[in-house]
Amino acid sequence: MARGTIDLWVGIFVTAGFLGLLFLAFKVGSATNFSVAEGYVVTAEFDNIGGLKTKAPVKSAGVVVGRIEKIVFNNRTLRATVSMRLGKQFEFPRDSSVSILTAGLLGEQYVGLDGGGDVELLVDGDQIVLTQSAMVLEKVIGQFLFNKASESGGDK
């Protein structure tokens, strides 16, 4: 086969290959997502983290602003210490609060961050004091049954 034809076809193949890679990178994956490699780390202590996993998103007003980096058990306070890395372009007041929420009924758990009203901002290494633990289904059902029982007990 002529040299030019081979070159043409190899060119088509290589172009198609790189287009495939670009398609995977930008259309399928989300390379446009901000990288949280640079950012600042804040911690928060929870009584119960439920099913929270590392790398779960941290959302504020529904927008992903960071990721969970590390979850450790604090032996002194007997609570879970969650470190989260927030993107450096996001700034939050110091009295912001975090709670563990669930996406949908059976979805994965994430951390919701609600901004406060303080003029000072959270910086690297800060600890968020206001936390709300994960909702544990068994506990909620238990509470509900307990309330029902005490209600019907009061009627009699």
Binding site: F13, A16, G17, L19, G20, L21, F23, L24, V28
Partner: peptide
């Protein structure tokens, strides 16, 4: 790798 990328994209 190019073939694998084309396969996934297709």
């Amino acid at each position: 790798p190019l073939l694998a990328a084309i396969f996934s994209a297709m």
